Amino acid sequence: MTLLAVERIKLFSTRSPYWCSALAIVLGVGLTAIIAAASEEQVSLGLTQIGSAQLAIAVVLVMAAIAVTTEYRFGTIRSTFLAVPNRTSALVAKTVVVAFIAGVLGEIIAFGSVGIAKLLSSNSDLSINTAAEWRHVAGVGIVYAIGAIIAVAVGILVRQTAGAVSILLVWQMAAEGLIGFIPKVGIKIQAWLPFTNATHFLTMGADSPEQGGAGIDFKLSQWGSLAYFAGIAVAMLVVALIVAKRRDA
């Protein structure tokens, strides 16, 4: 518990978590507000989560990576490892704190988006009743938390802010989507890509353009896709921890 408290204090001693959190909320909830205000028809529950699934998550990934790379940049990671010789414990504590914050932020954005849509489009039916609807909204926080683990792992491996952020943004926002354009095998490969599976977990049934994953023949159920996404995140973190133990800080 002491390590968790220390990592929380260290994280919030810089401005980046505050700015990233604010930007993520503005992008996620703000896009929903624009859609709801501009729409002359009813807004669907799926549309309320476009900002959280496509824009806000990118900012959260950046925040998670910076939580690690900043320490390497300013050399404070050396002090951390001197105070806690067990590097694995220190880095796992940091990962837990960052993932928890990312998860909470995801829930705020997801439910905040539904709330603003109800306010601006009062004639829309945005009630959350079915299990699929709850998964679509409440599942955003879970995806953010797992995504943060991946971002921390990338940060540990790369150690440089620019490199880690570039990898994460290109990976999450472009690379997985572009793979689908590869003739014959692109869509088959997409069915096993981590962030594509995270999107599949959040869908409310048949894939549609507004939910993502259209045309992909997923081999896993939606909860299976979440487990697969989490498995990749844990595997990457394990590799990152092994590398961190074997090289100089």
Rank of each mutant, 00 (worst) to 15 (best):
V68W: 06
L61Q: 12
A33D: 02
G205L: 03
V104Q: 05
V158M: 14
A110I: 10
G231M: 01
E40W: 05
I167L: 15
V97S: 01
H136M: 14
G28Y: 08
L157E: 10
I142Q: 00
Q54A: 12
T32W: 11
A240I: 08
Q54P: 00
E133G: 06
A227H: 01
S208G: 08
G205I: 05
S127Q: 11
V165M: 06
P17N: 01
L27E: 07
I128H: 06
L31G: 00
V98R: 06
S121L: 01
R247S: 11
F181P: 00
S52H: 08
G46V: 09
Q211D: 05
I179N: 02
A164I: 04
V243P: 09
G51V: 13
Q222A: 11
W171E: 05
M63I: 06
M236Y: 05
S44Q: 12
S225F: 09
A24W: 02
S166D: 00
G75H: 10
R78S: 14
T203Y: 01
V137I: 15
A162M: 13
A36K: 03
A191F: 04
R8Y: 14
S79Q: 14
I182V: 15
I146G: 01
V140Q: 12
N129L: 13
S113V: 00
T70W: 01
I142F: 15
I34Y: 14
R8K: 06
T70V: 12
S39L: 03
D125N: 15
V96I: 13
G163N: 10
K94W: 02
G30K: 12
A244H: 11
F100T: 15
L55I: 02
L168F: 02
F229I: 05
A67H: 04
A22M: 13
A214C: 00
G205E: 09
R135C: 06
T88R: 13
K219L: 08
Q160C: 00
A235C: 11
L47R: 14
S127P: 00
I150K: 03
V152H: 01
S122N: 07
P209C: 08
Y228Q: 04
A22G: 15
A22L: 15
G147R: 04
V26M: 07
Y144K: 08
A131V: 13
A233Q: 01
G231C: 09
F74M: 00
T76F: 10
V98C: 08
I66W: 07
G115I: 06
V170E: 00
W134L: 14
S166E: 00
A90V: 03
I101H: 05
A102D: 10
W192L: 10
I101R: 00
M236D: 01
A249Y: 13
A153L: 09
I182C: 10
F201Q: 06
